[in-house]
Design a protein around this nucleic acid. Sequence first.
DNA 1: GTCTGTGCAAACTGTTTGCATTCCC
DNA 2: GGGAATGCAAACAGTTTGCACAGAC
Lengths: 140, 140
Amino acid sequence: MNKDTIFQNIRNQGGRLTRLRKEIVQILVEEDCLLSSAKLLSRLNKLNLTPNRSTIFRELLFLTSKQIILKNNISGVDYYEIPCEQHHHHHLVCLKCHAISKIEIEDQLAAQEKKITKQNKFRIINHSLEFYGYCRKCQI
Amino acid sequence: MNKDTIFQNIRNQGGRLTRLRKEIVQILVEEDCLLSSAKLLSRLNKLNLTPNRSTIFRELLFLTSKQIILKNNISGVDYYEIPCEQHHHHHLVCLKCHAISKIEIEDQLAAQEKKITKQNKFRIINHSLEFYGYCRKCQI
DNA sequence: GTCTGTGCAAACTGTTTGCATTCCC
DNA sequence: GGGAATGCAAACAGTTTGCACAGAC
């Protein structure tokens, strides 16, 4: 999803296009992976935008509620990303430096979900799969 | 792993067997699924044990460090369970009532891990897979 | 002008830490 | 008796909320 489509989407849903909101979308589009509120804030600071943290949280809540971004809590902190409609992906999480990277693997999880739903009477909405370990830099 | 083996294991590693510690192990063995510190505390209360919360956290840290239990953070809160050596399992997490249940599915994740490690120079230690949705009771 | 978005301060949840006391072995 | 375990209070991180003001449309 490119940023202008997203802006249109926001307008269509009655949202306003403030500088902050546009920059946040821009940053998330460019990042193309999970980003924490703290990292997002420091990115904004570099653009001379110094919003209050509560504003960031509210903005991320807004974008999540409009289904523009997805929230994923990893080890206690919330991360956000723009979903990629074609390829559902997973993440590699470094236990030392906490870096997160995307990974695309073939899995039959979508197929499994149907089976699980049937067998367990549990209606699955989504899933999250993270691999924890040590990234290249942190292995030594 | 049964509780007496665990007690022996604790003794062997220099840990003491206090009433609290024994009850916590007992509760986790019986639960046989993820339990939060808060739920654990309320189970203990029913047994007329009213430890301080910090004691609970320290106890769970102790058991984790001794590899007797595993910690899994889901949506911002830590859950603990006694690992099951034969079958690695995953979890169904209800988005409404937050109930967590075990699920065993055939996956090739162990095989995938080797491939990922090779391709990404990322040494995987473990993974976590959770399915989010609505449990039987919460589906209306 | 209206209603959404924002800043500020304060509350909140889950977890961690320092220090003095208790009690297991 | 010595060291591990515990209670208590206080700190901490990440997130949420109430209220007043600012700014997009």
